[in-house]
Simulated assay, not measured.
Amino acid sequence: MVEIKTPEQIASMRAAGLVVAEMHRRCAEAAVPGTTTAELDRIAAAVIAEHGAKPNFLGYGGFPGNICTSVNDVVVHGIPSEDTVLASGDIISIDAGAIIDGWHADAALTVFVGDGHAPEVHELSRVTEHSLWAGIAAMRVGGRLVDISRAVERDIRKQPPPPSGRWGIVEEYGGHGIGSAMHMEPHVLNYVERRRGKGPRLVPGMCLAIEPMVTLGDPATHVLSDDWTVKSDDGGWSAHWEHSVALTERGPLVLTAPDGGRARLAELGIEAAPDPLG
């Protein structure tokens, strides 16, 4: 069953989303050469506490951090550690979540550490983030879940390929419903799988976390012995971008974007839904 939220519940999710946005802002500022991923985790914990929120990652299935910190060829679910020290030229995906009044929000962004990044690494992040917004723009009342998957995949496929040959769309992991729990139905693929059909109809009150993950090269992955860290098989670097989005009668509201997604959606000719928190 897909959980449908009331406007009041969406407002609580928006409050949680703003906490996530602040976690991202503070962690991204701190993601400089010499910083450990454990330090980023402590910053995220402080933001959660400052806003009277609760962490939704910490303890989830035994996960030991407040955020996921995935560096370079780590695709998702990297565990914060004192031993992982960021260096100039790295990229890091910071996946963060928070709970307000029992309602969840979840988002990820890819941050460039220092300088010296190859052009294809910059393009990797741009392509991934661009496909996220293409997916959000496809979240329209009356559409189908597959419309989002198709939009993400098409947007990635149409981009000029990198020197490594192709953009790899990670298939083992994807987006999800979100609301009274962090992970709910439906599963949101970042590509079209014909046997799954069109999926549920998109209706007001549906909330989804849309999160493309793209690699430089082969998209195949494996999980390390810690049972969390997901790496690319061929060592290709990965970018990860995610937003939690509520669908309303007046269009999408990007719960985890500071402006509700207004600016980026306007570039795509779409008006974001009004922000319930003003």
Score class of each variant (00 low, 15 high):
13 M>I: 11
13 M>S: 06
14 R>L: 15
14 R>C: 15
15 A>Y: 07
17 G>D: 14
17 G>I: 15
18 L>G: 04
18 L>F: 06
19 V>S: 13
21 A>N: 11
22 E>H: 07
23 M>R: 12
24 H>C: 05
25 R>S: 14
25 R>W: 03
26 R>I: 06
27 C>H: 01
28 A>R: 11
28 A>Q: 09
29 E>R: 14
29 E>L: 14
30 A>N: 12
30 A>C: 09
30 A>H: 07
32 V>M: 04
32 V>G: 01
32 V>H: 00
33 P>G: 12
34 G>R: 02
34 G>Q: 04
35 T>R: 01
37 T>W: 01
37 T>F: 01
37 T>P: 09
38 A>N: 06
39 E>F: 00
40 L>A: 02
41 D>W: 00
42 R>H: 03
43 I>N: 03
43 I>M: 13
44 A>D: 07
44 A>W: 05
45 A>S: 13
46 A>M: 02
46 A>Q: 09
47 V>N: 08
48 I>G: 07
48 I>V: 15
49 A>M: 00
49 A>Y: 00
49 A>K: 09
49 A>E: 10
50 E>P: 07
50 E>H: 06
51 H>V: 09
51 H>N: 13
52 G>P: 08
52 G>D: 08
52 G>R: 11
53 A>L: 02
54 K>V: 13
54 K>P: 01
55 P>K: 01
56 N>I: 14
56 N>F: 07
57 F>K: 11
59 G>I: 15
60 Y>A: 10
60 Y>R: 13
61 G>L: 09
61 G>E: 12
62 G>R: 12
64 P>Y: 10
64 P>N: 13
64 P>C: 13
64 P>A: 10
66 N>K: 08
66 N>G: 08
67 I>Y: 08
67 I>G: 03
68 C>Y: 02
69 T>S: 10
70 S>F: 11
70 S>E: 10
71 V>P: 02
71 V>E: 00
72 N>D: 15
72 N>Y: 04
73 D>K: 03
73 D>G: 00
74 V>Q: 07
75 V>P: 01
77 H>S: 12
78 G>W: 05
79 I>N: 05
80 P>R: 07
80 P>D: 10
81 S>H: 11
82 E>H: 15
82 E>S: 15
83 D>S: 09
83 D>W: 00
84 T>Q: 14
84 T>E: 09
85 V>D: 05
86 L>P: 06
87 A>C: 10
88 S>C: 13
88 S>M: 09
88 S>G: 15
89 G>Q: 07
92 I>T: 06
92 I>H: 03
94 I>S: 04
94 I>C: 06
96 A>Y: 07
98 A>E: 04
98 A>T: 07
100 I>W: 02
100 I>S: 06
